[in-house]
Design a protein around this nucleic acid. Sequence first.
DNA 1: CTTATAAATGTTATATTATTACATACTGTT
DNA 2: AACAGTATGTAATAATATAACATTTATAAG
Lengths: 132, 132
Amino acid sequence: MQKEHILSKNQKIIFDLIDKFGGPMKAYSILFNVQKKGIKAPLQVYRALDKLVEIGKIHKIESRNAFIACQNSSCQVSKATAFSICESCENVSEISNSKLSKYLSNFSDNSGMKYSKYNLEFFGLCKKCKSK
Amino acid sequence: MQKEHILSKNQKIIFDLIDKFGGPMKAYSILFNVQKKGIKAPLQVYRALDKLVEIGKIHKIESRNAFIACQNSSCQVSKATAFSICESCENVSEISNSKLSKYLSNFSDNSGMKYSKYNLEFFGLCKKCKSK
DNA sequence: CTTATAAATGTTATATTATTACATACTGTT
DNA sequence: AACAGTATGTAATAATATAACATTTATAAG
Ligand SMILES: [Zn+2]
Ligand SMILES: [Zn+2]
Ligand SMILES: [Zn+2]
Ligand SMILES: [Zn+2]
């Protein structure tokens, strides 16, 4: 189980927006959408995003510079993330596969490096886009 | 084996720089370093980078917005990439592990999605940084 | 060789993403 | 009350990436 975090005002506004939206959102799109709530500057958005990523409530989709709400409450807080991304419609979903996460969390090679975190992004065509 | 690509002038200048540098380079750092060779504008750099990524001569480290020469001539041209990244010294190396690549290339879940490409980034501390 | 086509280049301007710096306010603890 | 840690507000700017348009070079076909 995850530790519960009490979100601050800005953090809550921004998390609620991303969570409700359901898909990946870009920082400046978030900014535009929360301006009516009094959040006026990019930095206010980025600070909230940083914190939300840190506590695992959202994840950054690195290849898209976008942020998505965690769809997997049991994932190891931001330390082990995997996503599938449709290159046609840009739909993104978080992969929750215990075999995969176990395999990657235990991965080690002969580099002498100790891995404490990973991010995996799969690309392809989703069901809908495939059948077009 | 990979198909051989003949690089254009700008592509060759930029690939040679990245390859010689050995680690991840950022686009504007590349630009600065090739200005004496006549490449003056960001777009010239980005166009060469796009092409080099496309043909698998370099890869983009998404979490760092940086580009590194492919260290693994047998990797499936830009379709299956894995890196280890030291969060302390920012050293990056390409992971060449046939079991891992086989596992990920064959990965499928019940989403109905057909994966054609992936990128994996491991984070941790390298040997050197661990012992500090 | 000429024509056609695709790929690459040059140049300017601009869009998008993210951080620095500094001042202020809120929250919980001793 | 004093302190430490976290969060906020605001302005300016840095860093990353693309749009638009003109021109040139490479490749292949007729
Ligand atoms: Zn998650
Ligand atoms: Zn799709
Ligand atoms: Zn490679
Ligand atoms: Zn290191």
